[in-house]
Every structure is written in C-alpha cells, then in structure tokens.
Design a protein around this nucleic acid. Sequence first.
DNA 1: TTTTTATTTAGTAATGATTATCATTATACT
DNA 2: AGTATAATGATAATCATTACTAAATAAAAA
Lengths: 131, 131
Amino acid sequence: MSVKRSNSQKQIISVLKELKEEINAQDLYVKLRQRGDKLGLATVYRGLKALKLEGTIQERVSPTGESFYSVISKEHQHHLNCVGCGRSLSLDTCPLEQQALEPYQAENFKVFYHTLEFFGLCSVCQNQQPN
Amino acid sequence: MSVKRSNSQKQIISVLKELKEEINAQDLYVKLRQRGDKLGLATVYRGLKALKLEGTIQERVSPTGESFYSVISKEHQHHLNCVGCGRSLSLDTCPLEQQALEPYQAENFKVFYHTLEFFGLCSVCQNQQPN
DNA sequence: TTTTTATTTAGTAATGATTATCATTATACT
DNA sequence: AGTATAATGATAATCATTACTAAATAAAAA
C-alpha cells in the first residue's frame, strides 16, 4: 500500500531535489517547462499542495506573501528578512538545539518541519530614507 | 528630533497594544472604525508599513498569505501551523535560548524580532482524507 | 480488448489581500 | 495669510493563488 503519486508530482519532486534551493511556484513552472515537461501552472500548484500535505516538501511564505518550496531536509535554512526591501539572506547555521524541539513533537500535532526567521533592516535599507 | 508620528499611527498602536493579540489589517480597520476613529483602509496599511519599518510592530505572514500584526514584545509567540487546515495554535514558550540569537544581531543586519514556526498536521487533519 | 468509472489535467475566470494612483485635505514653514 | 509638504480617502490595479469546467488520461470492470 504505497503512496500513489502522479506523474506531475514526480516531476516536481525531481526538480526540487536537483535544485536543493527553495523556489516559488511560478519559477518552478518555468523550470519544468524548460525541461520539456508538459504541465500547466494549476497542476504545479496542485502538486505542491499534495506534497506539502504528505510532509515531503516545505513551504515558506515570504514577507511579500509569496510561497517558496523545497524538499524537507536536515540541512534546512533560515533567513534574515529585510522588512524594508523584502529580500532574504540565507543563514548557514540553525541556532535551535535539536533537543529543544522535541517537546513540540507531542501534543497531537505531527511536526514536519520548522522555520526560524529573523526580521529587521538590511544594511542598504538602514541607510535609506523611508518612503 | 523625536519620531514624527501621525494620528492614524497613534490610533493603530493604541489598538494593537490593548489587543495584545496579533490581528490582520482588515480586522484592525474594523476595530478602529468601531472605536469611532475615522480612517480609510489604505491608511491602515500605510500606518502598518511605517510602524513595521520603525521596528515598532511585527508582521507574521500566515500560510494563507495574509499578514498579522502585533507590537514587538519580549513575550513573543510562536505557533504550530497546520498545513492541512491552515489554523495556528499558539505556543506559550520559546525554545530559543536568548544567547543563541546574539550572533545574528551582527553582520550588518539590524534584527527587530524573530519568528519560529512549526508546520505539520493537527490532530483533526491527521484523521482526514486528503482532497 | 471494449466499456465504465474515477482521477488528473489544462486553460482560464474568479478571488482576495495588498498596493498604486490621484485628487483632496490637513499640517508645517516663511 | 500663502505656499510647500505630507497625509488621507476612495477606488482601480496588481499579482499570487484558487476555483471551475470541460477534456484527457488512467484504472477498474466486464
């Protein structure tokens, strides 16, 4: 009784895996078409949703409201998000001790992954007039 | 040379402070009108943006893409976010040690606040057919 | 293999939160 | 007061995402 997985979902996972970088739905759509995969944008969204519910991929909603997807891996990334320009800088370490997370695995909630995001002003936006 | 702050911004802060709960822009707009404050929705958005850039309030973008605002305080909250139904359960402790965060205060990025979010399936959605 | 049924898909319209625009009003400065 | 600057309201525009519908594909039954 294995998980049924449509063609489009396989293609999506394939691209996400070789990327090893988060990507938004529309760029992913372009990447798939470039590879020659023939699928529509709505199908990409559907596939992403299904994979998200399986716990296979994770979603990060950026300050601009758009979602970025990536396969869930131990080497997850966190970001410094600028509230000025909206850009995100990747961090290469996670300040969370693994054992600190365990209590949250319980209480009737199956945790797939976590996100830790920092918000503030990047150097560029610090030296800039607000508008 | 103190910070200039418009009437609308004062009203927004006032409501956010008495709330002590995150709220989205449109509900905030309704709350302000109910108090008798006369301002438009666009002004609410403008005020929230300005206060965000000041580092006075924080924004959390929910999985559905809408933003929730609250005053930045030491007693910040984290959530368990269900990837199924989108509901958020508040946690009452932060697993992050304060000293673990200090390194991220440096490197040309002024950190106002952080968010730590857990994603997975709530008990209801675990016992439900995917659709 | 044909027929039947359920699933998947593409294309596109609809949605909804947020942002841009622009004319108007309030505020600051001389 | 008179002019420059900033703030505001109303509403149109934007844009990622979702809903919808009909067609295509796959799976199951006969």
